[in-house]
Computed example of a mutant assay.
Amino acid sequence: MKAAVVNSFGVPPAYQDFRDPKPGDGETVVTVHAAALQPIVKRLAAGTHYTSGTSAGFVPGIDGVGVDETGRRVYFLFPKPPFGAMAEKSLVAIDATAPIPEDLPSDRAAAIAAAGVASWTALSRRAHLRPDETVLVLGATGAAGGMALQTARHLGASKVIAVGRDEAKLNRLNADVHIALNDDADKKLREQFDQGVDVVLDFLWGEPALRTLTAATKDRASRAGEPRLRYVQLGTSAGDDIPIRGDMLRGSGLELIGSGIGSVAVRDYAACAGELLAAAPAAGFDTPFTSLPLPAVADAWNGDPNVRYILTPAT
């Protein structure tokens, strides 16, 4: 079969021949229709993600859409190495697949799932969002952040707050409050936490996270007890490390929670993907994307980092 292949860490994949996958017990071969190029895919291919393997010679791609051996069109995630999603065929566990509504095109389904599964999982499985709560999204101008605003509203949030670095893009988002990460952000963040925030979804970490956590926790320590704040960490595009003071945790209702590979089981991710995609047509979930044929994988890899590329094998 033809596939994108990572032959060396840190080098864009090459479009070339690769051996066909053969399923074992509990596995299925998926004929791929669409695969998403996500930031995590590039980090895995560079050998810099915390789940990266130790050697090259694999097909990249952690999720996609295709047809399984029973003829079902499915979303699939976390293929069995070395058979990633960016190939004519991929190898996945049967319980890592979810059906797709008939009226949802494959490339759009791949884009929605790639951008939305993280927030759907974080809100429904990790933060356990309740109706009428307030959700703040840190990193709202990215594809995942934009979908997080949509999923938070769909899952019952009564108020959503968008926080990001691109003010022009930020102000185009459908949110109740927009906060640009400029010199005025600390005051505006504090005002929102004073009014009440129940859940933070953080796609950035680094300095923006430290500013947000400081605004949420500084000079609290009410003798009546502080309200609970579930802070869910989802990505580290702004930095891997931040200093956290002990009194941030002691003097507030702050609960730091991670949501990602390891803190969530694959079967739960698949279930969340199924719920998200089942809801997508009626909810009108959408996210911008650009489709390219799989042979153009190098163009997508070196393309605009603000564009979500969906690669489509010619099968």
Score class of each variant (00 low, 15 high):
residue 174 N to M: 06
residue 174 N to I: 04
residue 175 A to L: 05
residue 175 A to E: 04
residue 175 A to Y: 02
residue 176 D to G: 11
residue 177 V to D: 05
residue 177 V to M: 06
residue 179 I to D: 00
residue 180 A to F: 03
residue 180 A to C: 13
residue 181 L to E: 03
residue 181 L to C: 02
residue 182 N to P: 01
residue 184 D to Y: 04
residue 184 D to I: 05
residue 185 A to D: 07
residue 185 A to C: 14
residue 186 D to Y: 07
residue 186 D to A: 14
residue 186 D to Q: 14
residue 187 K to M: 07
residue 187 K to A: 14
residue 188 K to P: 00
residue 189 L to Y: 01
residue 189 L to T: 01
residue 189 L to M: 05
residue 190 R to L: 11
residue 190 R to P: 00
residue 191 E to I: 05
residue 192 Q to R: 06
residue 192 Q to S: 06
residue 192 Q to H: 03
residue 193 F to N: 02
residue 193 F to S: 02
residue 194 D to Q: 15
residue 194 D to P: 02
residue 195 Q to A: 15
residue 195 Q to T: 11
residue 198 D to Y: 04
residue 198 D to N: 15
residue 198 D to M: 08
residue 200 V to N: 01
residue 200 V to G: 00
residue 202 D to L: 05
residue 203 F to H: 14
residue 204 L to G: 07
residue 204 L to M: 15
residue 204 L to F: 05
residue 205 W to I: 03
residue 206 G to R: 07
residue 210 L to H: 03
residue 212 T to L: 15
residue 212 T to S: 12
residue 213 L to N: 00
residue 213 L to E: 00
residue 214 T to A: 06
residue 215 A to K: 00
residue 216 A to G: 04
residue 218 K to H: 14
residue 218 K to Q: 13
residue 219 D to P: 01
residue 219 D to M: 10
residue 220 R to Y: 03
residue 220 R to S: 04
residue 220 R to Q: 09
residue 221 A to T: 07
residue 222 S to Q: 10
residue 225 G to F: 11
residue 226 E to W: 07
residue 226 E to P: 04
residue 226 E to T: 10
residue 227 P to D: 05
residue 228 R to E: 13
residue 228 R to K: 13
residue 228 R to H: 10
residue 230 R to M: 08
residue 231 Y to W: 14
residue 232 V to D: 00
residue 234 L to R: 07
residue 236 T to L: 14
residue 237 S to C: 13
residue 238 A to E: 10
residue 238 A to S: 15
residue 238 A to H: 10
residue 239 G to R: 07
residue 239 G to Y: 07
residue 240 D to W: 12
residue 241 D to C: 08
residue 242 I to L: 11
residue 242 I to F: 02
residue 243 P to I: 10
residue 244 I to Y: 00
residue 247 D to F: 12
residue 249 L to S: 05
residue 249 L to C: 08
residue 253 G to Y: 05
residue 254 L to P: 09
residue 254 L to K: 04
residue 254 L to T: 03
residue 255 E to N: 11
residue 255 E to W: 06
residue 257 I to N: 02
residue 257 I to R: 06
residue 257 I to Q: 05
residue 258 G to I: 02
residue 258 G to D: 06
residue 259 S to F: 01
residue 259 S to W: 02
residue 261 I to W: 09
residue 263 S to I: 10
residue 263 S to C: 09
residue 264 V to A: 10
residue 265 A to I: 09
residue 265 A to R: 15
residue 266 V to D: 13
residue 266 V to G: 06
residue 266 V to Y: 07
residue 267 R to N: 14
residue 268 D to P: 08
residue 272 C to D: 13
residue 272 C to H: 02
residue 274 G to T: 03
residue 274 G to K: 00
residue 275 E to S: 14
residue 277 L to C: 02
residue 277 L to M: 05
residue 278 A to M: 06
residue 279 A to N: 09
residue 280 A to M: 09
residue 280 A to W: 06
residue 281 P to Y: 06
residue 284 G to L: 09
residue 286 D to L: 09
residue 286 D to Q: 15
residue 286 D to M: 11
residue 287 T to S: 12
